[in-house]
Amino acid sequence: MAPRPQLPALTAERARALLIYNPETGALNWRIARPGIVSGALAGTRTSEGYTQVEIDYRLYKAHRVIWLIMTGKWPAHQVDHKNGMRADNRWKNLRAATPLQNARNRRPGKRNSSGRIGVTQTASGRWQAFIGVDLQNRVLGIFDTFDEAVAARRAGETEHYGEFAAQSLEAAE
């Protein structure tokens, strides 16, 4: 069996020829008809992780990366972060370039997180501890009598150490 020919990488020109992007709504629509798809139809499908993906020239791409290519003319150097943490919200004002570390800072608590807040845990004595990861080390921000005090300390730590990539914007989305 002959090897599959290597397809050229998607270019901004090709993406713009195939797709229409609305930066205000984040909608990505087909500019031209495709087999089984009419011109103007919404492009892409939702993945199990909540991202929108689009198939172009037999390859799957995450829609937010294609949008970055369309808007800037080049692929992102690393990753594209959704500021509000909502993976399907592809409005231009919600997208920003991020390193993997910056992108990881802007996340929701995992399923095993019992407090509901990243960096806040209850101690064996029933008090609340706040901590933050900086320079590959966990730094304790303090031990507090109430959950709200620990959350406030974590928020302050995120603002100080993470800047615009602090996960505080996720609270508005909840």
Rank of each mutant, 00 (worst) to 15 (best):
A2M: 15
R107Y: 05
P5F: 03
N106R: 02
R127T: 13
M1C: 15
F144E: 03
G40L: 05
R65G: 05
L136G: 14
E13Y: 13
N29Q: 15
L19G: 04
I70D: 00
R108A: 11
G85Y: 03
A9S: 10
D145E: 15
L101A: 10
T123V: 08
A173R: 06
I118H: 01
V140Q: 14
Q53P: 07
T45Y: 13
W30Y: 07
N103H: 01
H78Q: 12
R16Q: 14
D145K: 15
L170S: 01
A173S: 12
F165D: 00
E160Q: 14
P3A: 11
R112A: 10
P100G: 01
G110H: 05
A41T: 14
K62V: 09
R34T: 08
A156N: 06
S114R: 11
F165I: 03
N113I: 02
Q137F: 01
L10M: 08
N113K: 03
W128E: 00
A172P: 06
V134L: 04
V66Q: 05
L69A: 07
G36K: 14
A130E: 02
T72V: 12
R96K: 07
A63P: 07
A152S: 08
E55I: 13
A167E: 01
Y162V: 02
R155C: 09
F165P: 00
V66R: 04
H64D: 01
T11R: 10
A97H: 03
G73I: 07
G50T: 09
A167F: 02
E24T: 14
M86Y: 11
R127Y: 07
G110D: 06
R127H: 12
R31L: 10
E24D: 15
A153S: 05
L10C: 07
Q79H: 12
Y58M: 11
R127S: 11
G85P: 04
G44A: 07
G36E: 08
H161Q: 09
P35E: 15
L101S: 10
L18C: 11
W75M: 04
R87H: 12
K83N: 11
W68R: 11
V38A: 15
L170M: 05
G163E: 02
A156R: 04
F131A: 06
A2P: 15
P8T: 07
I132L: 01
T146K: 07
W128I: 01
G50F: 08
R155P: 08
A41L: 10
G126I: 06
A166W: 00
I56T: 04
L101E: 08
G133M: 07
R4H: 08
G26L: 00
K62Y: 11
H64P: 02
A97T: 03
I118Y: 03
F144N: 04
L136R: 15
G163Q: 06
K83W: 10
Q53E: 13
